[in-house]
Simulated assay, not measured.
Amino acid sequence: MSSESMLNFTYIVLSIGLLIFIVTCIRFNVLLRKGKYRKGSKKDELRRHFEAKSYIPIASIVGLGLVFVIQYMARSSVINDLNMIIFIVIAITLFFIMLFILPEQLVILYCKYRFKSFNFNKQGYLNKRV
């Protein structure tokens, strides 16, 4: 692989990452404005459902998908080192997952600084609403 093709690959991955971040921010903003994250909403029920369940079936499906992607890349790539291909796929996947989660985490951080009721007191309880 030439350095030019690696640079093009990097630009494409970063562009897709930027697109994922922007779309996720817009989606999260729309959902917040519609009140989808309020207590008792469908999002709240879905979040409670997933917090109570195990992620093993989902992780198995994602892992199997990654294995197929890595096998395809190993067969059609110029890179012969399977460990390097696994590292590249896992790194890019984690990059995209973090960009998908980042907008929600930024809103939570904003709320922790803006509202006292998002923080815990010394006894470990949430502060009262002010």
Rank of each mutant, 00 (worst) to 15 (best):
L7F: 15
N121R: 08
F28L: 12
V69Q: 00
V130E: 03
K43C: 09
S76N: 13
F21S: 07
L32F: 08
I58T: 08
V13H: 04
L31G: 03
V107T: 04
A91E: 03
I56R: 14
F68M: 14
E4M: 11
N80F: 07
F87T: 06
G65W: 00
F50L: 09
L18M: 08
N80G: 11
V130C: 00
V67A: 14
I56W: 13
F9H: 06
N8V: 09
R114D: 01
K39S: 07
L19A: 08
S54T: 12
L94F: 12
K112A: 02
F118V: 02
F120M: 06
L66G: 09
K53C: 10
S60Y: 03
R33G: 05
S77K: 09
G63E: 07
I92S: 08
Y72I: 15
A59T: 11
E104F: 04
F115K: 06
Q105V: 13
Y37F: 15
S60G: 04
S2D: 12
Q105C: 11
I88H: 11
R114C: 02
K53P: 02
T93E: 01
G17L: 14
A74G: 07
S5H: 10
F115G: 05
F87Q: 04
F115I: 05
R48H: 00
Q123E: 13
T10E: 06
Y55F: 15
Q71K: 10
K116I: 04
V13M: 10
S60W: 06
F118D: 02
G124S: 10
F118Y: 08
Y11T: 11
F9V: 01
F9M: 08
S5F: 03
P103H: 00
V30F: 07
S54M: 02
N83P: 02
V67F: 14
V130R: 01
L18K: 01
L126Q: 04
K53H: 12
Y113C: 05
K53R: 12
F96Y: 10
F118C: 02
K34G: 01
D81G: 09
L106W: 00
I86E: 11
K42T: 06
P57D: 05
D44I: 01
I20C: 09
S5W: 01
F120V: 04
K128Y: 07
I97M: 03
M6P: 00
K43D: 10
S41C: 00
K39R: 10
Y72Q: 15
V69C: 01
I92H: 06
N83I: 02
L32S: 06
S3W: 11
S54L: 04
K43N: 11
M6E: 14
I26A: 12
K34M: 10
E51P: 03
F9A: 10
Y37W: 14
N127G: 01
V130L: 02
I85N: 04
R33C: 03
F9N: 08
V89M: 04
A91T: 11
T10H: 07
